[in-house]
Amino acid sequence: MIENLKHIFGNKIIDYVKNYDIDTLVAKKEALIQMISFLKNEEKFDFLMDLFAIDYLGYPDKKFEHRYEIVYNLYSFENNKRLILKVPVTEENPSVDSIVSFYSSADWYEREAYDMYGIVFNGHPNLKRILMYEEFQGHPLRKDYPLKKRQPRIDLK
């Protein structure tokens, strides 16, 4: 499968590793929609198990430039196989295409990633905060957001 992907997408695939028996692909974000569509329709990855972001700000000895990575955790029930697809996103332009049209479950996962990291998903039908409230400033799971910085909604004693 990996050979097949490398053949089709060529230099769009930045890296491929096996993380503790799970195939992990790192791909350029321009190829995301094409790749998701290929994985879902041709390789039968019918479950989107999880979608979230990771902030690598200040990660020790990091070998790449970008700050965020979006992780797509796919599962194929037919082949009982997992695949993790990672898409790098830069700090200057934290945006990526939405995959709601492929997986309905991506709807809330993308909203959560937007809420927690401020990553914009282009084409998402209803991109707004989900866990935090509208008045909240900033994105709490970013590494530069202090752990104990509270923003009360009402006056507390």
């Binding site: 999880d50 979230f52 990771i54 902030d55 020790p60 709807d107 809330w108």
Partner: peptide
């Protein structure tokens, strides 16, 4: 599911939980 990113220290860099009822509630 748990997705853990480690930076080689005693604390995790990122812990992500794949909550089963998140997608169901959505």
């Amino acid at each position: 599911g748990y997705y853990i990113v480690s930076d080689g220290t005693h604390k995790p860099w990122r812990v992500r939980v794949r909550p089963p009822c998140f997608s169901i509630t959505s």
